[in-house]
Amino acid sequence: MSTDLPTAHRPLTDAPRDLAGWTAALRDRPIPVLASSAAALAVLAEAEEARGNVDAHRIDTAIDDDPLATLWVLNLAARQRHVRQVTPAETITSAVMMLGIGPFFRASADVEVVEALLAEQPQAQDGLRAVLRRAHRAARFALGFGIHRMESDVTLLRVAALLHDVTEMLLWCHAPALIGEVAARLRADPTLRSETAQREVLHVSLVDLEQALLRAWHLPERLLRLTDDHAEGIALVQPQRRMVKLSVQLARHTQAGWENAALPDDIEELALLLNLSPLSVRTLLGELDS
Rank of each mutant, 00 (worst) to 15 (best):
A119T: 06
D55N: 15
Q85S: 14
L163M: 10
L284H: 13
S290C: 10
Q125G: 10
E112T: 14
D60W: 12
A89G: 07
N53Q: 08
A235V: 00
L68F: 04
L5V: 03
Q249S: 13
V83D: 00
A183M: 10
E48A: 07
D265H: 13
L128E: 02
L34E: 12
R140G: 07
I101Y: 05
Q121F: 13
G180D: 04
M98P: 00
I63N: 11
D14M: 13
P11H: 09
T196H: 11
R252C: 08
E48T: 10
E115V: 03
E259L: 13
P239K: 07
E49F: 10
P176N: 04
E195K: 13
A183H: 09
V182Q: 07
M243A: 03
D110I: 03
H230W: 05
S194E: 09
H9L: 15
F141C: 12
R137N: 08
L132R: 09
L284D: 07
Q240P: 10
G286E: 08
G100Q: 06
R129M: 14
I63E: 08
T93C: 02
L202E: 02
A35R: 15
A8L: 10
A160I: 00
V33P: 08
E268L: 10
L272V: 00
R10Q: 15
R140T: 09
L213H: 05
T23C: 15
A107H: 14
M169W: 06
A161L: 07
A216S: 14
L178E: 11
Q211T: 02
N275V: 12
W72A: 12
S194P: 09
R58N: 04
A138E: 05
I267K: 00
A216M: 04
V159R: 15
W217P: 10
H82D: 10
T227L: 01
S37G: 05
D265C: 05
D265N: 11
K245G: 12
R185I: 00
T196E: 11
L71M: 06
H230Q: 11
L143N: 07
S277H: 14
D153L: 06
L214T: 08
G102K: 11
E48Y: 09
D28Y: 12
A261K: 13
R51T: 11
V43K: 04
A130C: 00
L34T: 15
G100Y: 03
R149L: 10
R185S: 09
L178H: 09
R51W: 01
L99I: 13
C173W: 04
H230N: 08
R193E: 08
G257K: 04
V159I: 13
V154N: 05
A138W: 05
L263V: 11
E269I: 00
R215M: 06
D208I: 01
A212N: 04
L68I: 05
L192K: 07
C173A: 15
L214P: 06
R27S: 14
A135Y: 03
T7Q: 15
V154I: 09
T155R: 14
E269Y: 00
L71N: 12
V33E: 11
Q240N: 13
P239N: 07
L143C: 10
P220F: 02
H82A: 12
A262F: 13
L219N: 03
T23E: 15
D110T: 14
G100K: 05
R17T: 11
